[in-house]
Design a protein around this nucleic acid. Structure first.
Lengths: 225, 225
DNA sequence: ACCTGAACACCGTTCAAGT
DNA sequence: ACCTGAACACCGTTCAAGT
């Protein structure tokens, strides 16, 4: 990483697939998904837009590779825990936080399911589900539910945060606005939602996410089928 | 719906917000999300692209309104069931099937959370969660988990189906290919995924989705916290 | 009040031409 | 082998001009 020797002629920094991905991640983090354009990327790399195509197949390839890199980092960061349940919680939170910090990772995962990043997550979850003693014929459905929940909620949470940022960025004020609207809904048609204003204002997305994971974990243990 | 009388001058079919949304839905269903362009829509409506902007704020408005229409239809179609659990399953399946048949509804829901369509779903789920006897202070987190799971999995399932279609359309062949790749993974690094090939080949997305809903429902009943 | 359609400022991707 | 940058075929959105 500190080495600067290029392959053949000594150049300041030659255009490599790695450097393109690196700058793509920086661009995605700073300007979001819509900020990643070949023109903007070419400018950052001090080259022409067409040059990128020598190393990268297309925009999808660019996004998928950047996403795989982030998921690898996230999974490497989750240490082994005391119980399988705790390991599952750690993986879940690691992904939640990564996708929260890099919302574009979420959309990339949605766009390329069952690819390498997802398989790594599946494996990590599967090993813990086995350790919990779930019978073999139920393992696929159980892991599938966990994976879907984790990715689904993380992606939606990140999308919410992005929308919040686009709408001004004051989370408390935005929540308060929605909560206020809920409280003024028609009592006959929306008896439930009307009463949820206070809980919406006070809620913590990360805690609710974890509560959902726990709900599934205790469903696995109580095993209805 | 059969009436053809326009507002003031008798015209074949005047340009209305309703007609624009109707044609947008048709276009989205036939050509997918990328098929909805102002130019294609204008052609279908036999007008200019700019004319649409008189009735619709922008593309987001177009997609959000079309999405709201579809969710309303989906919720109206779910009849009252014997138990709260069954009602929740019916709502879940209704949304799963709608989003499966109209994948663009999924992306629109993700893009506009806590808007009118989501609130209607929240209300329907919330009433059943109350009927199940969940204590008030847990209701928000429980409904939130259910809603997240249902939307998250449905959206991902629809995305998968779209990708499958783009890749040739033969679901069995595609699954078989992925399953085959799983079975050849390194035994040391992927002991779990390696064994899941058969279950992946045999699995039913809709059944797995419902199994996940049941997992959450039994987690709610066994109530760890 | 509503519609037209050209114009603007963008995209991803391709490709002849260079080194 | 790799890079350049103009060109192509698109976008969403705006807006002067029409009726």
């Amino acid at each position: 990483m500190a080495k600067n020797t290029a392959s053949s002629p000594r150049r300041e920094q030659s255009l490599t697939r790695e450097r393109i991905i690196e700058e793509s991640i920086a661009l995605l983090d700073s300007s979001g998904e819509s900020g990643l354009t070949f023109r903007a990327l070419a400018e950052r790399l001090a080259t022409g837009a067409g040059a990128i195509y020598w190393h990268i197949a297309n925009k999808n390839d660019l996004l998928a590779t950047a996403c795989a890199e982030m998921v690898t980092r996230a999974l490497q960061a989750t240490a082994q825990q005391a119980s399988p349940q705790d390991s599952i919680r750690a993986v879940a939170l690691g992904l939640f936080d990564t996708i929260d910090a890099h919302p574009w990772v979420g959309s990339a995962l949605t766009r390329a399911p069952l690819q390498s990043p997802t398989v790594h997550i599946l494996e990590k979850l599967g090993q813990q589900v086995r350790a919990m003693g779930v019978p073999p014929q139920r393992q696929f459905a159980v892991v599938s539910a966990l994976l879907s929940y984790i990715l689904g909620v993380s992606v939606q949470n990140a999308a919410n945060a992005q929308i919040g940022r686009a709408l001004g960025g004051d989370r408390a004020a935005l929540l308060d606005e929605v909560a206020g609207a809920w409280e003024q809904l028609d009592a006959g048609q929306f008896p439930f939602t009307r009463d949820m204003g206070a809980q919406l204002r006070a809620h913590d997305d990360r805690a609710d996410f974890l509560a959902g994971v726990d709900l599934i974990l205790s469903g696995i243990v109580s095993a209805p089928l």
